Amino acid sequence: MEKMVLVIGAGDAIGSAIMRAFADKEYVVCGARRGGEKLEPLVEELRAAGKQAYGFSCDARKEEQIEDLFAQIEANIGPLDCVVFNVGANVPMTILDTDTRKFFKIWEMATFAGFLTGREAARVMTKRRQGSIIFTGATASMRGAAGFGAFASAKGALRNMVQSLAREMGPQNIHVAHVVIDAAVDTDWIKGMLPDYEERKANDGIVNPDDLAQNYVMLHEQPRSAWTFEMDIRPWNEKW
Rank of each mutant, 00 (worst) to 15 (best):
M1L: 11
E2M: 13
K3E: 12
K3V: 05
V7M: 01
G9E: 06
G9Q: 06
A10W: 02
A10N: 02
G15F: 01
G15H: 00
I18Q: 02
A21P: 02
A23R: 00
D24R: 15
V28Q: 09
C30R: 06
C30P: 06
G35Y: 11
G35L: 12
E37Y: 10
V43N: 05
A49Q: 13
K51M: 11
A53M: 05
Y54S: 03
Y54L: 10
F56T: 10
F56A: 10
S57Y: 02
D59I: 13
D59E: 08
A60D: 03
Q65G: 02
E67S: 14
E67F: 03
D68I: 00
L69F: 01
Q72M: 08
Q72D: 09
G78Q: 11
G78S: 09
C82I: 13
N86S: 15
N86K: 00
N86A: 12
N86C: 11
N90V: 15
V91L: 12
V91E: 03
V91N: 09
P92D: 05
M93R: 14
M93I: 08
T94G: 14
I95E: 07
I95G: 05
L96E: 11
F103C: 05
I106F: 00
E108N: 15
F112P: 00
L116P: 04
T117D: 07
R119C: 06
V124K: 07
V124N: 04
T126C: 13
R129A: 14
R129D: 05
S132P: 02
I133C: 09
A138C: 12
R143M: 13
A146T: 14
F148I: 01
F151N: 09
A154R: 03
A157Q: 03
L158E: 07
R159H: 14
R159G: 01
M161A: 15
Q163V: 14
S164E: 00
L165D: 06
L165F: 15
E168R: 02
E168N: 02
M169G: 01
G170D: 14
P171S: 12
Q172N: 14
N173Q: 13
I174C: 08
H175C: 07
A177V: 11
A177S: 15
V179C: 04
I181C: 03
D182C: 05
D182K: 12
A183W: 00
V185P: 00
D186N: 13
W189Q: 14
K191V: 02
L194G: 03
P195M: 12
Y197H: 14
E198K: 12
E198S: 10
G205S: 07
G205Q: 09
V207C: 03
V207G: 07
N208V: 11
P209W: 02
Q214M: 10
N215M: 07
M218T: 15
H220W: 10
H220Q: 08
Q222I: 07
Q222A: 13
Q222M: 15
Q222P: 03
P223Y: 09
P223E: 13
S225N: 15
A226L: 10
A226T: 09
W227V: 12
E230I: 11
E230Y: 08
M231L: 15
M231E: 10
I233K: 10
R234I: 11
W240Y: 07
